[in-house]
Structure formats: structure tokens, C-alpha cells
Design a protein around this nucleic acid. Structure first.
Lengths: 234, 234
DNA sequence: AATCCACTCGCACACCGTACGAGGATTGTC
DNA sequence: GACAATCCTCGTACGGTGTGCGAGTGGATT
């Protein structure tokens, strides 16, 4: 009894496109639009079919199941991420720029946050980024497994920082001042046992949250790059 | 027009428990068991009702919706995370131990990986951990906002590293040798354009994956702590 | 005895992913 | 032209999902 095996759109031959039917690009484009408009919850095969002026199950000719469709859409997100050439700007600036690029892309495609880490990233665009990162850390001076470790470390940080940011935007981002105050008052109640956290909550309410999160991101990013740099010199 | 407002189980009064009905603890316990056995997909309100020998919708008396139930279960995961006393072992060891504790807990409750970052963590156990971390970084010498930044940075790293690990275990963890080889062969095809990545794939296949991921986690963790330490001395 | 209230639960609704198989449309071959 | 093969569409149906609603039950209080 073999368990449910690993599978991915990228690991099988697509149908030979011969006839005059719809194309995979067309479908993925419609899917991404739907995801942008209505989020991950808002994408259903029926709605996608309707958007393509097609029947509900027509998409299944091009895609084995919904997960494959999401994999295709997911790779479109990776397409938007750019790895600067480390030979021109040096590995540190290159890494920082990549990190910011990744963060920006995810904030622009919030639905991708729910896919990261859940979905294999084996599409051509994800591969391109991964290879660019490898090259970057190789040029920095990492060797062997350390290249992959540095790779994983940086992406783990960026994703780990940005995914909750997306969730925050989704739930708290569009409250008016009144609701925001009310919510903060309730959060204070949840933290009632911890005076230090209360002080922090009240302090944070006077700052622009978006700017604060950017400060936080940079703080962690600089720390991480410092730590990686240290591995090179000793 | 106010958008859908923020809400959480922890930010409202629970029903006054008066009568002889089931208790919230009982329900959460059953939910966690179901999650352990069948994963996040496997938890449905109907199955939970059945497990409690109750009707399908009885749980809705104690919980407003499924998300609230998941919030309750999620906080049980935070209960398992321990923050060592930084006054005894120093902040660095304390932070490292906490990071390993978080990773271990998530690997033990894989269903929690899908909740992290999607769900607010405002339960008492999450609060306890957050406060412990604040104390830890305060003792380390961080001040003001830097405490929260260090906090976010560490958790972002741990979660960002561990969530994909859980996904990997779920899909690739229980393949036999034959299927694993077949899968690796297909992954090689996906990376065909990038010779460096091919070499890496072949290299990795001779090592124990679990041990490699632990090495990777420690690599990033040490780097991150180095980077944070540097912020203290300059 | 009457009233209240915590609590249970069957039914129904609107949705979901997708298996299946009958058809239509287009192409290639004689 | 005819015929077959292939590509592609889609209506129907099945078994699930979360959950709103309102009738019902049983113990405690008045």
C-alpha cells in the first residue's frame, strides 16, 4: 500500500495542445484575475468556468484538479520576483533587494500567502528565482550545503515575516478609526495580565502601522544579513 | 459601510456556562484529537459532532463558527511551547531553546502549520509565550520597539522555516524508496535548465533528509542570533 | 404548576470539487 | 465525398462542506 504519492503539474507531461481549444495561459490569467478580485476563497471551478464563458467542468481538460490550477497561478507570483545581478551590486545589496522584492510581490498578491509553504514551488519561475539565489550566495562565498542553507534561511525569514502581514491587512487593514479603537480596546483585554504588552499596544497606536511593519522587516533583514556575513569571515 | 470587522473568540464574552451541557475543554480536546488523526482537512463540524456523540450542529452553541473552534485548538498548540527563564541561562541559549521548542511543537502538530499566520494568536497561551519572549529580549538589552522587532524576527524565521518542513513531510515523508527515486527523477527534469541545482539534488539524495533539515535550521538560527547580538553591541 | 433558559438537533440551503460519459467539433486519411 | 480518430465541451450527479433556523427537551427557579 503506497500512500498518496507526491504530485505536481510541473512533474508530468501536459496534454498535447493540438486543437483550437482554450490555452493554459488563458485559464491561468483568468484564475489570477479571480484570485486578485476575490481572494483564495473566492476562486471556485464554477466561477472560473463562468469567467471563461465555459461550463463548470471544462477546465478539467487542461488541469487534473484544483491544486494543479493553484500551482500554475502560484508560479505566476514567482514570475514577479526579481533577483538583481549580484555581480553588479554585491551580494548583500542583491539579497536585500530580493527580499524586498519578495515581500512586495506577496503584499500585492495576498492570496499567494496561503499557498506559500503548502504548495510545492517547482514551476519555471520559482526555479529561476531559486537558481538566482544560489548564484548570489555562491558569489558571496558560501560553499556546498551552506548555499542551500543560506537560501532557505532568507526565504524563511521573508515569508515568515510577510505572511502574517498579509493576514493583518486582510482583517485589520480596512477598519475605520472607530472600529480600530474598539478592536484595540478588546486586544488590551486579552493582554490584561501582561503590563509590558499593554504599554506596547498603546504605544503602537500612535504610529502608522504600515511604516512600522516596514521598519520591523528591515530590522530583521539587516540582522539576518549581518549574521550570514559573519559566517563568511570566520 | 464598514467592512467585515475583526473578530476572535478571545475578544468576546463566552456564553455563561450554567447548565449541564458539554464544556468548551471537552470540545477542544475532541477537536485536537480529530486534527491529530486526520489533519486540518479531516476536521468537519459533522465529524466533531459524531465524535462527541452529539448532533452535527450542537457545537455551535459553544462556538460561533468553525474559525473560532480552530482558534481554540490553535492556542492549545501554543500551550506546548516553553520559554526558558532567560535569567538562568542567558538570552541566547534561551532564544535558541525557544526556537527549537517552537519547531518541535509544530512538527508534532502539523495541522497547526496551516493556521500560523492566517489566524490571530490572541489566546492565553500565545500571550504567555509572547510575554516570555518580550522579557527575554528585554533582558538581552533590547529597548523600546526593538524588543518587538526582535520578537517578530525570531518567530518569522522559525515559522518560515518550519511550515515548509511540515508540507514536505506531508507529501514526501511517507514515500518508499522506489517512489522517492521516481519523484527525484522528475524533480531533476523540472530543474533541467540549471546545472547547479541538479548537482545539489543528486548530492542531497545521499543524506538523511530529517537530519539535513535540522542542520539547516541550526545554520539559520545561529546566523540570526549572531545578527541580533550584533545589534546590541553597536 | 408555571415559567424560564441552557442546550440539542433535524432539516434545509447554498455552495464546493470532481467523476463520468454522451455529445460536438475539428482534423487526417482514403 | 465518407469515415474514423482525436480534441474538447459540458450537463448531470454524487458526496461532501459550513451553518441559519426553529422546534423541542429537560432541569432549575419562582
Amino acid at each position: 500500500m503506497t500512500g498518496k504519492s507526491f504530485s505536481s503539474v510541473w512533474l508530468r507531461e501536459p496534454r498535447k495542445a493540438g486543437g483550437p481549444g482554450r490555452s493554459r495561459e488563458e485559464i491561468v490569467k483568468a484564475a489570477v484575475e479571480l484570485l486578485d478580485e476575490e481572494g483564495l476563497q473566492g476562486l471556485s471551478m464554477r466561477k472560473l468556468g463562468a469567467k471563461l464563458s465555459a461550463g463548470a467542468t471544462s477546465v478539467y481538460w487542461y488541469v487534473a484538479n484544483k491544486d494543479e490550477l493553484l500551482e500554475l497561478a502560484y508560479d505566476e507570483v514567482w514570475r514577479m520576483m526579481t533577483v538583481p545581478d549580484p555581480e553588479e551590486v554585491g551580494w548583500r545589496d542583491s539579497a536585500a533587494a530580493l527580499a524586498h522584492s519578495m515581500r512586495r510581490v506577496i503584499l500585492r498578491y495576498p492570496w499567494a500567502a496561503d499557498l506559500i509553504g503548502r504548495m510545492p514551488a517547482l514551476g519555471p519561475n520559482a526555479m529561476r528565482v531559486a537558481n538566482g539565489m544560489r548564484k548570489m550566495f555562491d558569489l558571496a562565498g558560501f560553499r556546498g550545503l551552506d548555499i542551500d542553507f543560506a537560501n532557505s534561511t532568507l526565504t524563511a525569514y521573508v515569508f515568515g515575516m510577510t505572511i502574517p502581514e498579509v493576514a493583518w491587512n486582510a482583517t485589520m487593514g480596512d477598519l475605520d478609526d472607530y472600529d480600530a479603537d474598539k478592536t484595540r480596546e478588546m486586544v488590551r483585554k486579552a493582554a490584561a495580565d501582561y503590563p509590558d504588552m499593554l504599554k506596547r499596544i498603546d504605544m503602537g497606536s500612535y504610529e502608522d502601522p504600515a511604516y512600522m511593519r516596514e521598519l520591523c522587516f528591515d530590522f530583521g533583514l539587516v540582522s539576518l544579513l549581518d549574521g550570514l556575513e559573519r559566517r563568511l569571515t570566520t
